[in-house]
Amino acid sequence: MKRLALFTVILAGVLFAATASEFPRLGDPDSAPSRHLSPAYIQGSLPQTHTPNFVTAVLGDYRGFDTMFETAVVFLAGMSCFFILRALRRRGLTEVYYYRHKPTGVVLAMLAPRRISPRTSCFERIDADWTPQDMVVETMCLFMVPFIQVFALYVIAHGHYSPGGGFQGGVLLAASFILVGLSRDLRTVESLLTEKTAILTAAAGVCLYAGTGLLALFFGGNFLDYGAYASFFGAAVPAARSMGILIVEIGVALTVMATLVTIYKLVSSRGTVEEGL
């Protein structure tokens, strides 16, 4: 079986290498896409959509249908991770909760029905494989979180003018939550963005994208034709398209952020969402 896999890989590599010579050279002005397609986007995106970064214009407007289903695929990936990995609590399973007495450092193990109320301030819940954490690392990581989030919002909002957009900004937002999970524990992430909220946010992002496209029908345009919102925004058609791209990017960012945080929670806690890394 291993030999067969190696043979398949080598065959595919030889085929790739053989076809690579047929590709047009990088930046060849006579290749098929450079003759019609690229000039149309490069020259048309600024007057048609008011978006100097034409990658964003192509992703959000010209090829908006592709990006909508990409967002749906990201949402579906999160949902399938949830259905495969999530371990629902079974009855009869003995569970142990560990609590650490903060002043003395004594650790108590409590069997399942018994818990120490989270309101008692001298005990803190800890993971089963808890090790004393370095205060410098934890403080610096938590210090970085707001800066990462502000940069993520900048990437989302400034995607029209610079590299970036909803997808990258959403990943950065998710990274800020994951950093909290890595430096503190999973319960802090859970208190900031609960599982239910995350999945609802992911669904809301897809609905925002598809809803923006659907609403354009009621304004007399085609599906995902943001130019139809010109009367609603009281602006010219290109400016309305620019606004539409921004709304759609926010939807993408919400879905990507919530999905990645959900996947991280499930993978790092063996599907229980109780004790993470």
């Binding site: 990943v171 990274a175 993978v267 790092s268």
Partner: peptide
Amino acid sequence: MAAVDVAFTEATIGAGISTVLMIAAVFR
């Protein structure tokens, strides 16, 4: 290759999140 948007995505997803997810999977 002057594909800055793709590079940004690769840096955030590939080098950032997927490494964390793989390390979490190895850890568990």
